[in-house]
């Protein structure tokens, strides 16, 4: 889990199932951030709205080059209102690119998340119910995947498959897969020993029904938190691949790719560095805040500890 979700997931679980200190031990840790939680939710909502309406909100086409307006500064520092956030080195409107970039980042992030969750949950459930052969083999393979730093694995997958949108999604999904499998398996193992599962089995439920109708709903809270935080990691990884030039091909308005080309203008046009980075960070920060809040709220053990 370490590699795909650096913060969230490594806290509660110890490597060999030995109980560690649970992460947010302070009952009121959420209190520190509660004040900004509504802001985070609001910003997330705005981001999704902007992403959905990007074609109508954006003043220009994100790939249209205005050759007479290269590296125009933003409106507040001497630019014109026609290009409120300025232009990049090819004269493309920054605001339009950022808006379309939001669309791309959120979409890839969500798609990668789902592409990791669905097989991850299924593998995790079966690994828990068939621990001997299937579970053992699956988990060792997941261990091996986990040993590879997430970004390097993603880079390697993209290197072999070739750069592109779909391959980015596949690479990030593969990177996140072991985290989901481990978490699902751990939660499912916990549940499988409980009386209601035995009762359900005695009532004649088959494995599939037992796993998906009885066990899975009870494993959902940690999975929801994991999915949220996995979403933010996915956005970071998408942009990292874009930054390395392994994401969507140019001229796609992708936040990370925008940063990569911004490097050369760091002295002359700092806004091409500030703006895409700010977009990535604000999205990730908002999702992380939301995920933290969600964890405090969904974890009944913590709520009782209060």
């Amino acid at each position: 889990m370490a590699s795909s979700t650096p913060v969230s997931a490594m806290e509660p679980e110890s490597p060999r199932g030995v109980p560690l200190a649970r992460a947010p031990a302070s009952p009121r840790q959420g209190g520190i951030l509660n004040g900004v939680m509504p802001l985070a939710v609001l910003w997330l909502f705005c981001l999704f709205a902007m992403a959905a309406c990007a074609p109508w909100l954006a003043p220009h086409d994100p790939t249209e080059q205005f050759r007479e307006h290269l590296l125009l500064p933003p409106a507040w520092s001497g630019g014109t209102l026609a290009f409120p956030f300025g232009t990049d080195d090819l004269g493309r409107d920054m605001l339009s690119r950022l808006l379309h970039g939001a669309r791309l980042s959120l979409m890839i992030g969500l798609a990668a998340n789902i592409a990791a969750l669905v097989p991850g949950v299924i593998l995790g459930l079966f690994a828990a119910s068939h621990p001997r052969c299937f579970g053992f083999f699956t988990m060792r393979l997941m261990d091996a995947l986990l040993a590879l730093p997430s970004l390097l694995l993603a880079v390697a997958v993209v290197a072999v498959l070739g750069a592109g949108l779909v391959n980015t999604i596949l690479a990030i999904a593969l990177v996140q897969l072991p985290g989901v499998v481990r978490l699902t398996r751990a939660a499912a193992l916990d549940e499988l020993g409980r009386d209601y599962v035995t009762a359900s089995r005695m009532a004649g439920a088959g494995t599939i029904r037992l796993l998906f109708a009885a066990v899975l709903p009870n494993c959902l809270p940690p999975l929801i938190v994991q999915a949220t935080l996995g979403f933010s990691v996915a956005i970071l990884d998408v942009a990292a691949l874009g930054f390395l030039g392994l994401g969507a091909p140019p001229p796609t308005p992708e936040w990370g790719a925008m940063l990569a080309s911004a490097r050369d203008f760091i002295e002359t046009a700092p806004w091409v560095v500030y703006l895409p980075g700010m977009a990535i960070m604000s999205a990730v920060l908002a999702i992380n805040l939301f995920g933290d809040g969600l964890r405090d709220w969904l974890d009944p053990k913590l709520r009782m500890a209060m």
Binding site: I32, L236, L259, I280, M281, D292
Partner: peptide
């Protein structure tokens, strides 16, 4: 804790560019 949250939400590639801007190039 607010700093820590910012720290782990920070895209490393952006933070690197900002660090170059702050500590090497200068601001404006």
């Amino acid at each position: 804790m607010a700093l820590a949250l910012t720290g782990y939400s920070m895209p490393i590639y952006w933070w690197g560019l900002l660090a170059i801007l702050f500590f090497s190039v200068g601001l404006g």
